[in-house]
Amino acid sequence: MSQQPRIVFEAIEASRSFDVSKGPLQRVLSGEGRRILRAVDSVSFGISHASTLSLVGESGCGKSTMARLAVGLYRPTGGEVRFEGQNLSAARAQPALRRKMNMIFQDPYASLNPRWRVRDIVAEPIRAFKLLQGPKDINDRVGQLLTQVGLSAKDGEKFPHEFSGGQRQRISIARALSSEPEFLVCDEPTSALDVSVQAQILNLMRDLQNRYGLTYLFISHNLAVVRHMSDRLGVMYLGRIVEQGPAEAIFRTPRHPYTRLLLEAIPDISSVGRRRTPVGGEVPSPIAPPPGCTFHPRCSLANERCRTEKPEHTRNDDVLVACHAVQEGRAV
């Protein structure tokens, strides 16, 4: 690639916190202050046109909150989220830009209205954005979309309950594509599916990306799936991105101790009978994260500095890592 690829989506120091305090009276009675959960904490990344950036991490790391920030379901409480060079709320005010982003949700059972026929579900964005007029044009387009995702045009007459989990996820994808988007946010799109069906959906998403030049923000807890899908990767821990860069570089040489832990922990079919030393500890509560580097209680490389001072991102080749040990060369 000679020319600089266009940045479709950008998060600049984006933060989102939630007030999880008890009620005012209870706070007075118990003498507690407000409690703020920082679900996403100064996260910055950009996704260039027709590429996939994945965010990976364990439950509670803030990846789904980031997905919601990216499509405007949440507003950031700090920093900025930009789409096509414009602030997201400004971009979303323009229907022409708003239709260019869409989302695929995790649960194909909960994200489709059970009382609507599939053709109405898929046609809803077309109608909402007035992309086509007249029932015949809309019907033809729906049939075309359903065929594209591997269903048949006749399936439009059916209701969601007549489909299996994998087929429902295809319907979700058809709906997401119906507004002719450029940018899709996929929040764990295959984690409710069986592996053989997961492979079908992942292949479909790759094919669609190649054909239409789609840009994906892909959220998953499954590193093997992420490796298969991503061009770039961000590893999240307690609301922050601890390591980000080209996916291949991170998988080849993971630098941050948490990335290493995740990669070490995953059972893989290529590791028959592997003996492992399990990693200790659990993810701390995001309401009261540990001071300094939030990973230090589980990190074997932690020293005094890690316990007190929050690490900044430093660049190693193409990879940004937020770790004192890596920066000081203590991580070998």
Partner: peptide, 24 residues
């Protein structure tokens, strides 16, 4: 065979996962 091919691996990235069409 299909099941093993459909599992994305950490070891190597393939262009397409092997897929078993249809469902059980």
């Amino acid at each position: 065979e299909g099941l093993m091919g459909s599992i994305p691996s950490l070891e190597a990235r393939v262009e397409r996962l092997r897929q078993i069409d249809g469902a059980m």
